[in-house]
Design a protein around this nucleic acid. Structure first.
Lengths: 141, 141
DNA sequence: GTAATTGCAAATACTTTGCCACGTA
DNA sequence: TACGTGGCAAAGTATTTGCAATTAC
């Protein structure tokens, strides 16, 4: 078995989680996937379908997030966020993981060179990016 | 009235949208907010509450997104994405706006200096970031 | 006058929880 | 044995659509 899985299971054990079939398969699935996955994708993946319920995967993910082993991507837990695109304006954001406050970062964005590089190397068109910083604000601490 | 609103309404008119009260108030709300907002926040905001239905705001946002005047933040339209956090590993992603494919970017991430700067200036703790590039992949074009 | 837009209500989609059975330590 | 974990089903929350009435052009 992949040593990274062993190692990750070890981290889970240290966190107090029990070593179950569902846990092992979930970790293996996430590890084998080179990219973030949705709950539906995970529950439907070969290793987990017929193996365990979607609710189980959901609760496993919750526990793993709580122990810093998995991360949920994106701004907010549920709702979608919309922002106005103004010509010549670009905003990155700083989000508090405690209270959820969002503020725009005015500092120059250091990503444009990498963006040019990606455009050239991959052939993607209409490239743009999103950059968000997350952390606990002084007020929440 | 804020000239930026006038200008943005102009962009909407050029896109073929009708100048309605709801459109004006939505644009003003987004413009006055320094940060991205959810559908619920928008519909409940002073300018829009009692002014128009949530479905109206939703469809306005759709049209504005279609014309590149508004952007919806995040990876996918609906579901949440989860990823394994491996010690010492950091991944940014390249997402196709056409087919939705997601691939990890291995190039060194140029954001860490800015992250240090933010940590120092704002006092946020446990800082981390997410960086995603979006574009149309060669296959979808 | 005509076609885009809106409100209301219903339908979907995704997430989250309750409760009891089960399995790990 | 005891408590974390799992399955099933129901509830909760956010998004999306149908349709008739309204409004901008």
């Amino acid at each position: 078995m992949n040593p990274l899985i062993q190692q990750t299971i070890g981290r889970c054990r240290e966190a107090g989680l029990r070593r179950t079939k569902a846990l092992e398969e979930l970790l293996a699935t996430l590890l084998e996937s080179a990219r973030p996955m949705t709950l539906a994708e995970l529950a439907a993946s070969p290793r987990l379908a017929d193996q365990c319920d979607k609710a189980t995967v959901f609760r496993l993910l919750q526990r793993l997030i709580g122990h810093g082993i998995v991360r949920r991507l994106g701004l907010h837990e549920r709702a979608a966020y919309f922002t106005l695109l103004l010509p010549g304006r670009h905003n990155d954001y700083l989000i508090c993981t405690g209270c959820g406050s969002i503020e725009a970062i005015t500092a120059p964005c250091p990503v444009h060179e990498l963006e040019d590089e990606i455009r050239a190397k991959t052939g993607y068109r209409n490239l743009y990016h999103e950059l968000e910083f997350f952390g606990l604000c002084p007020h929440c601490e």
